[in-house]
Amino acid sequence: MTRSIGYSRCSTTHQDTDAQVTELGSAGCQEVFAEKVSSRAPLEKRPQLRRCLESRQEGDELVVSKLDRLGRSQGGGDQPSLRSPDQGDLCRAS
């Protein structure tokens, strides 16, 4: 069974992820991981994104409100992989 797993991020303590979390729930996400961290932070400093990626099972999809929630340069070497050899594309924007 395919699950939709959401990831929400904002950069500063003056922002919150509430609107993103609501949007992800409306998009059908059964679980949402949220954190306040810079988009430039490497994966090892983004515990909720790590947990989100580690929780995926075959057939699951990662859902974000906007692709920049994952990071500023999706092509950068320090950004998480959005593809899997077995599963193809793993990410969609809500």
Rank of each mutant, 00 (worst) to 15 (best):
R9Y: 05
R40W: 02
C91L: 14
G75D: 13
T2V: 03
S65C: 06
L62S: 09
Q30T: 10
R92W: 08
L67C: 00
R72T: 14
Q74P: 14
Q79V: 08
E44K: 14
G28F: 10
R40Y: 07
P80A: 15
V21C: 04
S55R: 09
L67K: 13
C29K: 10
C29M: 09
R72M: 11
D16G: 12
A93Q: 15
E44W: 12
V37H: 11
R69P: 05
P80G: 04
T2I: 01
T13M: 07
D78F: 13
P47A: 09
E61F: 03
L62A: 08
D86K: 14
V63M: 08
S4M: 03
G75I: 07
G28N: 10
S55A: 11
E31Y: 03
L53W: 14
R40I: 01
V37Q: 15
L70R: 06
G25N: 12
P80Q: 10
T13G: 09
L67I: 15
D60F: 01
Q15M: 10
T13A: 15
E61W: 02
D60E: 03
F33M: 05
A27K: 07
S94R: 05
E44L: 09
V64A: 03
P80Y: 08
V64S: 01
F33Y: 15
G76Q: 13
D89R: 15
S8D: 03
M1E: 00
P42K: 15
P80D: 02
S4F: 00
L43C: 11
G6I: 01
S8A: 15
L43D: 05
C91F: 03
S11Y: 05
E44V: 10
I5Y: 04
D78C: 05
S26M: 03
S81Q: 15
E58G: 01
S26H: 09
A19G: 06
R83H: 11
D18C: 08
K36P: 00
I5K: 04
G59Q: 02
R69L: 02
K45E: 15
E58F: 00
G88R: 12
S8T: 00
Q79W: 09
M1C: 02
A19H: 12
A93D: 08
E23G: 10
E23F: 02
R83Q: 10
Q79D: 08
T12F: 07
D16Y: 12
M1I: 00
R56A: 02
E31D: 06
C52Y: 12
S65H: 09
D18K: 14
R72G: 09
T13V: 11
V64I: 01
R9S: 02
Q20P: 03
L90P: 03
R51V: 05
R51A: 15
S39P: 05
I5R: 07
E23Y: 02
R83W: 12
L82S: 01
Q20M: 07
P42R: 15
A34T: 08
A34P: 04
L67V: 11
G76W: 11
T22A: 14
G28I: 07
A41C: 10
G25P: 00
L24G: 07
D89C: 13
L62D: 09
A27D: 04
R83K: 12
S65M: 07
G25E: 10
V37D: 07
P42Q: 14
V63C: 05
S55I: 06
I5H: 05
D86R: 12
L49D: 05
S26I: 00
